[in-house]
């Protein structure tokens, strides 16, 4: 591998990290908020796929990709609110409900998405931030979708809000000690429902990014488990929105490994490198299960922690 090949891989990885990380980031921020309130929504994988399909369909029919993004978020709100509502019923397990919603979201998306596999919808335009460079690889790597910046701003807002607003502190109270929150007159089911719905919105937006920006078309194999990996990512980020950004970039870079090696002609082990995010997920799950500081920062009401 020559020097320039290495640079090409590096540029492709950076560009890939930014592109691939965006849906991870949105799902992870949504899941982070939901888990902070003491619930786990494993259904975000389904929400992600449904968001991708809804976003694509609305963009195709209306001609406005941003309307598609909003519609995808709306679909996510419905899914999240339904999850939150079912989980407040007595003796309902949030993980089981989440698995059901994963299948439901995927099924709905496949059912309604069939007619949209062929047609081409208007995509989200990327911002060309690489204009200063003559290098086409740099230009391509730095053609960034605005949603990436929205995600980073959201992460900062979420991080700030969880410490500095009444709503944020209420979510943390509910997630850490439901008994205390109840004693203060907080309606914990409502807080969790809203947190799950907001998490669903973000996951839906993440889905719209998949179909409207990168890879940029609607197909049934679009998500390939990113919604589930985002759950692992939240644990890795120890429920901190800012660390979610770093973790999403890491996952994105891992996901870009296979394609970027292919771009310089290394197709040997292509499928193995494509599996990098999954291997990373597994490694992170093992490492964080052993991590004592992660145990300390986990919201105490989470059903996997209790």
């Amino acid at each position: 591998m020559s020097q320039s090949d290495l640079m090409i891989v590096l540029y492709a990885m950076i560009g890939g990290a930014i592109r691939v990380s965006t849906p991870f980031l949105f799902v992870a921020l949504g899941e982070c908020l939901t888990e902070k309130s003491g619930r786990i929504n494993l259904g975000l994988e389904g929400t992600l796929i449904l968001g991708a399909m809804v976003g694509y369909a609305v963009s195709y029919n209306s001609g406005s990709p941003w309307l598609g993004v909003l519609a995808a978020g709306g679909g996510g709100i419905v899914m999240g609110a339904a999850h939150g509502w079912i989980c407040k019923l007595p003796k309902v397990n949030d993980i089981a409900v989440g698995l059901a919603f994963m299948s439901l979201g995927t099924g709905l998306a496949f059912f309604f998405g069939k007619p949209y596999i062929q047609p081409s919808a208007p995509r989200l335009q990327s911002l060309p931030l690489g204009g200063w460079s003559q290098n086409p690889q740099v230009q391509q790597a730095l053609s960034v979708n605005p949603l990436f910046f929205v995600g980073i701003l959201l992460a900062i807002a979420l991080w700030w809000g969880l410490r500095n607003t009444r709503a944020g502190l209420t979510v943390r109270m509910v997630g850490d000690s439901a008994a205390s929150a109840r004693a203060m007159g907080v309606n914990i089911n409502m807080v969790r429902l809203l947190a799950t719905a907001a998490g669903g919105f973000l996951a839906g937006v993440g889905g719209a990014f998949l179909s409207l920006s990168y890879p940029g078309s609607w197909s049934e194999g679009l998500s390939s488990g990113q919604g589930l990996m985002a759950v692992a990512l939240v644990i890795f980020a120890r429920w901190n929105p800012l660390r979610c950004v770093l973790a999403a970039l890491l996952f994105g870079a891992a996901g870009a490994l296979g394609p970027s090696l292919q771009s310089i002609g290394i197709s040997y082990g292509y499928h193995f490198f494509n599996a990098a995010p999954y291997i990373l997920t597994l490694g992170i799950m093992v490492a964080s299960a052993r991590s004592k500081s992660a145990a300390k920062e986990a919201p105490r009401e989470l059903s996997i922690v209790k």
Binding site: R166, L169, T170, R172, M173, G175, D176, S177, A179, S180, A181, A183, M184, E297, P299, R300
Partner: peptide, 17 residues
Amino acid sequence: HFTLVPCLTAAENLVMA
């Protein structure tokens, strides 16, 4: 049994009360 929220600081607990 305590009614304080463990993950919040003393100050955050007082303000939220």
